[in-house]
């Protein structure tokens, strides 16, 4: 459903991502992991139509992404600046539904259902600044759910919350998205998280970012924070991904030629 063809972007002379090719199938949870500054955000912003990539194409359901597609939602890392502080949780979740041509009542009901799904039914009337970071991020997730996108992009969604909240949110996303059969592209710098959450892990190199690894995560579901993480397969995958992210000894295959990736 999502296809990236030779996706390339430069900011002036800075080469952020370089010929990324990637296909995401319907219902898949794909984690993109890479070292900081590998162009993860550039990748996400290109897919969301927030920037126009300088080269290559993004195809969503076979159609090229021109402006922001209407069947795509994003959960940003910085929840404090992604929710509107002048609106209650309910209004924040309901606002994007205006585009769906729903009545006020239908919007409120859909928003309430989504908030209940993320466990915030009782906090619908609260304002973002009355909530903890984890709660605010749940509201962002509820907003994305209520929008019923076919593709959900998540940009380091759990990067700004504490470890316990992070685990809770990971499980919440897995559960809720499995329930709705949603396709997810989750961007993270956390190797452990990428293996835990993903059906597939795609590893990007340092800038200019390109795909250096694409691993299928063959772990039994439903995932469990303790049991999944102690599986041999999990430990091995995490080590594999970790090595690729470090990129120290990795070789880059490019036009059939090999050369060492510069190490820092």
């Amino acid at each position: 459903m999502l296809e990236l063809v030779d996706l390339t972007h430069r900011y002036g002379t800075y080469h952020a991502i370089d010929r990324i090719n990637l296909t995401v199938k319907q219902g898949e949870v794909v984690c993109v992991v890479g070292p900081s500054g590998c162009g993860k955000s550039t990748l996400l912003r290109s897919i969301a139509g927030l920037i126009k990539p300088t080269g290559g194409a993004v195809l969503l359901d076979g159609r090229p992404v021109e402006s922001t597609p209407d069947n795509l939602a994003v959960v940003f890392q910085d929840y404090s600046r992604s929710l509107y502080p002048w609106l209650s949780a309910l209004a924040n979740v309901g606002l994007p539904l205006r585009r769906r041509g729903m009545s006020r009542k239908a919007r409120d009901e859909a928003a309430m259902a989504a908030l209940t799904e993320v466990g915030l039914g009782a906090a619908a009337g609260k304002f973002p600044w009355e909530m903890s970071g984890g709660m605010q991020q749940r509201v962002s997730i509820a907003r994305a759910l209520a929008y019923r996108p076919s593709l959900l992009l998540m940009d380091e969604p759990f990067g700004s919350v504490d470890a316990q909240t992070r685990e809770e949110l990971e499980d919440l996303v897995l559960r809720v998205c499995a329930h709705h059969g949603m396709t997810i592209l989750l961007i993270t710098h956390d190797v452990d998280e990428s293996v835990y959450v993903g059906d597939r892990v795609v590893v990007l190199s340092k800038a200019p970012g390109h795909v250096v690894g694409d691993l299928t995560v063959d772990l039994p579901g439903p995932r469990d924070q303790i049991r999944t993480r102690e599986l041999d397969a999990f430990v091995k995958l995490r080590a594999d991904v970790g090595r690729m992210v470090r990129g120290m000894s990795a070789r880059r295959f490019d036009n059939g030629m090999t050369h060492e990736v510069e190490t820092r």
Binding site: A48, G49, L50, S67, T68, D70, L72, A73, V74, F76, D78, R81, S82, Y84, W86, L87, L95, P96, R98, R99, R143, Y147
Partner: peptide, 25 residues
């Protein structure tokens, strides 16, 4: 910028961006 990008991602109309994002902000 994040307020505006959120509005773009969720496809707010120009009127909604003005009345519900820019002016309140």
């Amino acid at each position: 910028r994040q307020y505006l990008e959120t509005a773009r991602v969720f496809g707010f109309t120009r009127t909604d961006v003005l009345w519900r994002v820019v002016l309140p902000a």
